[in-house]
Design a protein around this nucleic acid. Structure first.
Lengths: 226, 226
DNA sequence: GGTCGCCTTCACAATCTTTTTACAAATCAC
DNA sequence: GTGATTTGTAAAAAGATTGTGAAGGCGACC
C-alpha cells in the first residue's frame, strides 16, 4: 500500500512519515505542491495526505489536479486552521477526510485507517498487532510482547520488524530499508542501519548473539525466515 | 524519468530525442558506444535506447557493459537490419525490445511505454524462481532447494546458475561470464572464475566431482545440458 | 534548566567474501 | 608420449561488510 504525503514543514512531514511507515505504508513524500502532483502521476499512490498551505501549488490545486486524473483516490487534508477545513468542505473539493494540527499519532492512524477501510474494503487492517516469530508486536502502543515480557519499541523499530515480516523468507536489501524507512531523500549514513539493527536485536531477540528474527545476509541485507 | 539515447546518425538521434522529450523524458544523448557507456555510468538513466551500429563500441558491447552493471535496466535496441538473427542476438544480449528503422513516432512511443510499464510493474523477471536440473533456485531468498535440502547462495552464484540455465545446451564462454557477472571494467584475474565455479559446485552439485549442472567445456567455458 | 530516549556518526574489531597464488591434475596439440 | 595449456582446488592474502560501544545532537518531557 503506497501513500503520498505532501507537507512542506519538515518536522511534521517526517513525523507523519514515520507513523505511516510504522503502519506499513510505502511512503513517498513531497515538500511542495508541484512535486506532489509530479509524484502522484509518477507513483500512483493508493491515497494522499495533503497539507493545504504549501509553496508551489496549494493543497487545493493539487487536489483538483489529482481529482482530474482520478476521482476516486482517497485524499486526506491536513491543516492548522479549521476555517480552511471548512473551506475544503464548503468547496466540495473532494477530500475524504481532514486532520487538524496539532494531531496525535492515534488520531492520524485512526483517520487513515477509516479512509482506507471505507475506500478499499478488502484492505487488511494495518496497525493491527502482528507477530514475527514468537514476538507479538502492537504498533499502536509502540510495544511488543514475548510471553510475559513487554518490550518498548520505537516507530522505526516497528517499521523494520514489519518490513521483515511482510517479506518473510525473502532477503530485504539495505536499499529497501533506506527507501521504505527513511525515504530516498533523507537517507542517513549507511552505518545507521547496522546500528538500528544492533539495537533492535538487543531488544527483541531472545539471544542477540544468535538472532532468529533479524538474520544478516552478508553483502545484501537482512532476512526473517518465517 | 531519465533516458539515455545512443545513436550515431544525427538526424535519427535528434528525431528520437524530440520524441522522448515530448513524452516527458529527461533525455541524454550519445553519438558513439564509448560515450554511451561513459554517460550510462555517469547518469544512471532509467532506460536506454541503443543503436546497434555505432563507432566506438557497438550496441552489443554497450549492452554487455550495461548488463554487467545492472541486469535490470530496460534496453531497447535500434537497428536498420531487420534480419531475424540480429533480433535474436539482441534479445539474448538482454535487450528488452527492438525497433527497426525506419520507424514511426507512434511505434517508438508505443515501444517505450510498453517497456517502461513492463519494467516498472514486474520486478519479477530477475527475482522469479527458476529451476536448473533438480535444483530450485529462489533468487529473492538467495537460496536454492533440492528436495529437502536448502542451500544458501550468493548473488554471484545465482548469476552463474541463471546464465547457464538461460543458455541451456549451449556453451557459455568465460568472457561472457566476466562480462555479465563482473562487467568489462572490473574483470578480475581469470582464475577467479574457476574458483567461483569450484565453490559453486561444492554447494549445489549432488556429486561435485561429477558435475551435472555446471559442466566444463575445456578451452571455452561451461555448459548446463537441459 | 536537567534528564531521558532515540537517532546518528564514528572507530575499531570481528567476520565474512572475493581474489590471488600455488601447485596438482586434466586436457589438448603434435 | 611429451610438453604446453587449461582447469580444479586448497590455502593465503586482500578487501569489504557488519557488530557494537562510545559520544554527541536533538527533541520530548518534567
Amino acid at each position: 500500500m503506497k501513500v503520498l504525503l505532501a507537507e512542506d514543514d519538515r518536522h511534521i512531514r517526517e513525523g507523519l512519515r514515520d507513523i505511516l511507515v510504522a503502519e506499513g505504508y510505502e511512503t513517498i513524500t513531497a515538500c511542495d505542491g508541484r512535486e506532489a502532483v509530479r509524484l502522484y502521476l509518477a507513483e500512483s499512490p493508493h491515497f494522499v495526505l495533503l497539507d493545504i498551505m504549501m509553496p508551489g501549488a496549494s493543497g487545493y490545486e493539487v487536489c483538483r489536479e489529482i481529482r482530474g486524473r482520478d476521482p476516486e483516490v482517497p485524499i486526506i487534508f491536513i491543516s492548522a486552521k479549521s476555517e480552511e477545513i471548512d473551506r475544503v468542505l464548503g468547496l466540495e473539493m473532494g477530500g475524504d477526510d481532514f486532520i487538524v494540527k496539532p494531531f496525535g499519532v492515534k488520531e492520524v492512524v485512526a483517520r487513515i485507517r477509516a479512509v482506507t477501510r471505507r475506500c478499499l474494503r478488502e484492505r487488511p487492517t494495518q496497525s493491527m498487532p502482528f507477530t514475527i516469530g514468537d514476538l507479538e508486536v502492537f504498533p499502536a502502543e509502540l510495544r511488543a510482547r514475548r510471553g510475559e515480557n513487554v518490550i518498548e519499541l520505537s516507530l522505526r523499530e516497528i517499521g523494520i520488524l514489519r518490513l521483515l515480516q511482510e517479506n518473510r523468507g525473502k532477503v530485504v536489501d539495505r536499499n529497501t530499508f533506506f527507501n521504505r524507512l527513511w525515504g530516498i531523500e533523507h537517507a542517513p549514513n549507511s552505518r545507521t542501519l547496522d546500528q538500528q539493527i544492533s539495537k533492535l536485536r538487543q531488544r527483541v531477540e531472545a539471544d542477540p548473539a544468535n538472532p532468529s528474527l533479524v538474520r544478516t545476509v552478508h553483502g545484501v541485507g537482512y532476512r526473517y525466515d518465517g
